[in-house]
């Protein structure tokens, strides 16, 4: 081989080919990209910790701290796992309330013009109310309790899901509805086999969005006014000026979110959308 004829790119590919012979395979490429980005992130983090050691603790220190935080009893007599569980429970309750409300209101908006007019009139206000002000207002009104966070986050996360489901209803395939009519298909069959499967991608998009919103808002609510949950502990370490435990909780938070994505949402998605060509 004449090395002068080989570009740097081709040379790189030939090395990758030698190390990973089937890298052209799509799933292999996906794994390589995921691993590559994770390694790059850790590398950047490590470099950052070397440059500004006072501001950014090294990854290994944070991981050790995270493990320690989860398993041993910390301030307020609870382990990190206990606080995580409390926050997760709040997220689950709010998620259930919010997704139910999202579906009920979004679908009703698609079916009833009066409901559509009323809700769409209030949506801009509903979606742009600053969550922090709502949290403070309800905490003063209802007390500095978990229930205040549940009420506020349920109310203010929901409109983002509603918009999605409403769009899904508007996007219903009229031709499929007409097909159902010509074959004299009943309402229950239409809902089960046409409307709901059509809405499913919108439900997944809403769930993913709601989950992100709810997680973040619950932690903010806990940080502002509660003594339990991950947010409250992060605030405690913040007031003590400790960086390492804050990042340790951030790592824990990321692990949970990624776990939900890859252990729950992705497999469900693969199951429900197996009809889509690769």
């Amino acid at each position: 081989m004449n090395w002068k004829d080989v570009s740097i790119l081709e040379f790189t590919f030939s090395i990758i080919d030698t190390i990973v012979p089937n890298w052209n395979d799509r799933s292999m490429q996906k794994s390589l990209v995921s691993t590559g980005s994770l390694v790059s992130f850790l590398l950047l983090w490590y470099v950052g910790s070397v440059i500004v050691p006072d501001a950014i603790p090294a990854p290994d220190v944070v991981f050790a701290y995270t493990f320690d935080t989860i398993t041993s009893t910390g301030p307020r007599g609870k382990t990190g796992f206990d606080h995580l569980f409390i926050s997760l429970r709040r997220v689950a309750v709010i998620g259930a309330i919010s997704l139910t409300a999202t579906l009920a209101i979004g679908i009703t908006m698609g079916l009833n013009e009066t409901v559509e007019d009323v809700v769409s009139m209030w949506l801009p206000l509903w979606m742009t109310t600053p969550d922090i002000i709502a949290l403070l207002f309800f905490m003063i009104l209802m007390g500095f309790e978990g229930i205040s966070v549940i009420v506020v986050v349920s109310i203010f996360a929901t409109p983002f899901g509603i918009v999605n489901i409403w769009e899904g209803i508007q996007d219903l395939d009229r031709e499929l509805i007409e097909m159902g009519q010509t074959f004299e298909t009943g309402t229950v069959t239409m809902w089960r086999h046409v409307y709901l499967p059509h809405l499913l991608p919108y439900v997944f998009a809403s769930s993913r969005y709601l989950l992100g919103q709810i997680w973040k808002l619950v932690l903010v609510g806990e940080a502002i006014g509660l003594n339990t949950g991950m947010g409250s502990i992060v605030r405690l370490w913040f007031t003590l000026g400790e960086i390492t435990p804050i990042i340790a909780y951030l790592v824990l938070f990321m692990v949970v979110v990624l776990g939900l994505e890859y252990i729950v949402l992705k497999p469900l998605e693969r199951h429900f959308f197996k009809w889509r060509p690769e």
Binding site: E175, L176, E178, M179, F183, E184, T185, G186, T189, H193, V194, P197, L200, F273, W275, R276
Partner: peptide, 22 residues
Amino acid sequence: FQEPRLLNWRTVGENIRFVLRD
């Protein structure tokens, strides 16, 4: 129809079952 108007999320067999149900 001019376009097949099938339920893409149901198998071929289920598409036929769909019109038999009611």
